[in-house]
C-alpha cells in the first residue's frame, strides 16, 4: 500500500462473487449432466402449462434426474408463490 495509492481507483475484490456464482452454476449443471437433451424443452413446456393456472417463473421449476441401479427417476418440483391465486379460466 503506497502513499500515492489514493490516486488510483481501487478495483473491487470480486473473487468472492465469482466463487459463489460458480459454486451455484456448477452444482446446477452437474445435477442435469448426462440427462436427456429434451429436458430444457420439457421444462419450458411444463412452465407454459403451469402458467395457465398460476403465475410462476422458470426458476420455480426444478428438474432432477437421478440414476439408481437400473432405473432413472425424473424428479420435478414446482415452487408455488405464496398466496397463489388461481387465474380466472
Amino acid at each position: 500500500m503506497g502513499i500515492l495509492d489514493f490516486l488510483k481507483r481501487k478495483p473491487e475484490p470480486t473473487a468472492a462473487v465469482a466463487k459463489e456464482r460458480l459454486r451455484i452454476i456448477v452444482a446446477q449443471e452437474r445435477s442435469t449432466r448426462g440427462a436427456p437433451d429434451y429436458l430444457p424443452l420439457l421444462r419450458n413446456e411444463l412452465l407454459e402449462v403451469i402458467k395457465k393456472y398460476v403465475h410462476v417463473d422458470l426458476e420455480a421449476i426444478n428438474i432432477n434426474v437421478e440414476r439408481d441401479s437400473g432405473h432413472e427417476i425424473l424428479e420435478l418440483s414446482v415452487a408455488l408463490p405464496e398466496h397463489a391465486e388461481a387465474k380466472p379460466g
Binding site: 478495483p11 473491487e12 475484490p13 470480486t14 473473487a15 468472492a16 465469482a18 466463487k19 460458480l22 456448477v26
Partner: peptide, 17 residues
C-alpha cells in the same frame, strides 16, 4: 491479484471443481 481478492485462488478453483 489473488492476494487482494481480485482473482480466484488455487483453493477456490479446487473447491469449485
Amino acid at each position: 491479484r489473488v492476494a487482494v481478492g481480485e482473482m480466484l485462488s488455487v483453493k477456490d478453483v479446487e473447491e469449485i471443481l
